[in-house]
Design a protein around this nucleic acid. Structure first.
Lengths: 192, 192
DNA sequence: TTGTTATTAGTAGTAGGTCATAAAATTAAG
DNA sequence: CTTAATTTTATGACCTACTACTAATAACAA
């Protein structure tokens, strides 16, 4: 960036940059904009943007919880009861982070992930992988509603497990899915 | 924590604590264990645990990318072509962060999310929500394989859209899903 | 007691800042 | 052009949460 921007332009771009990549230091920014570090700091002050370490910490903290419940752990929701190989129950408190902004409806992927991981948890067998999933969404789930998932193995054929998972909000069924899982022994990969 | 632990015990507990909550400073740890800060630092050295700021940065960085591709953005994958209301194509480069550790198979939720978001993108109508999804996984996808999603509206009935999405790896079909979407005008919420 | 390991203390140096003050450069207005 | 206001830069003191290093002391085992 060779050109010199006016204050306004620079501050706008600065905001955009930090939104996309919060890991940039004041020094790097000052080089990008060809201004002194102090100018960058004044800009941040005026825009109310915290220092690098705070930004990083915020990213870490907000995502730590989130990722714990959807991606980081291999389980979505909270396992509250399980009879391995037979059935299990899990719970997921939905929140604002899980919904479509406009409609406030919980994204399907959360329900799906909750059901899938519950199915996998029941069929403990050294990480089973999914063959077929047949899914029905009965009614939309809203932010704040507590999802209860009940899963049950309904048939076992060789190393194939058929698991049904139902999701409820207040005893009312909101989702159901049939999963076919293939158990995997330590030898060899799997064809579904 | 009043008791004094032996080195081994202390280091084990230290490891556990930082695994559960990486945001703890050496000072806080030294108070918890009733030892000096230097001892904590020696412990960290021996265990190969980086300093607070590094830990926080790691959490932030690993989750930043992850959340960007599955939760943060409302779209999973990269939209490479779209004819609104008719069809669309998207691309997703799978990587290690998306697989089950043991089997290296890409988690179903990623394929599901990719397909779902593509379906939603086609039926642009101010955030449509999912009614029914009927899904088949044809074969497992491995880390590094490039997923191509092709979506097509196959029927429109009033404000309901029926969209089929196919996922391919090297022209080979690996996943298919049928989505029923309900368009939502700015008035009122939706029953599926 | 001697040797070994574990712990504590202290100093210097670092990154990436904050806060306050002052001087210089740029821009706008009369 | 000159003055005033705005914007930018410079400077120094201080902060946190460290690293890296040296040195002294405490604990315990043979």
């Amino acid at each position: 960036m060779n050109e010199k921007f006016k204050k306004n332009e620079r501050q706008e771009k600065l905001q955009d940059i930090l939104k996309e990549d919060p890991f940039v230091t004041d020094e790097e920014l000052s080089e990008k904009f060809n201004v002194s570090i102090q100018t960058i700091r004044l800009d941040r002050m005026e825009l109310g943007i915290p220092e690098l370490r705070e930004r990083v910490k915020n990213v870490a903290e907000t995502n730590f919880a989130k990722v714990k419940t959807i991606v980081g752990k291999e389980f979505v929701g909270e396992l509250i009861d399980i009879t391995p190989g037979k059935s299990a129950i899990s719970l997921l408190e939905t929140d604002k982070s899980m919904v479509f902004e406009k409609t406030k409806v919980v994204k399907g992927q959360y329900m799906y992930a909750m059901a899938e991981t519950l199915a996998l948890a029941i069929v403990d067998a050294k990480a089973a992988l999914i063959g077929i999933a047949n899914i029905k969404y009965k009614r939309p789930v809203l932010s704040g509603e507590r999802l209860i998932a009940k899963g049950e193995v309904i048939r076992v054929r060789g190393n194939k497990f058929f698991v049904w998972v139902f999701l409820y909000v207040n005893q009312q069924e909101v989702f159901r899915g049939k999963f076919a899982l293939v158990g995997i022994e330590d030898n060899g990969g799997g064809n579904a």
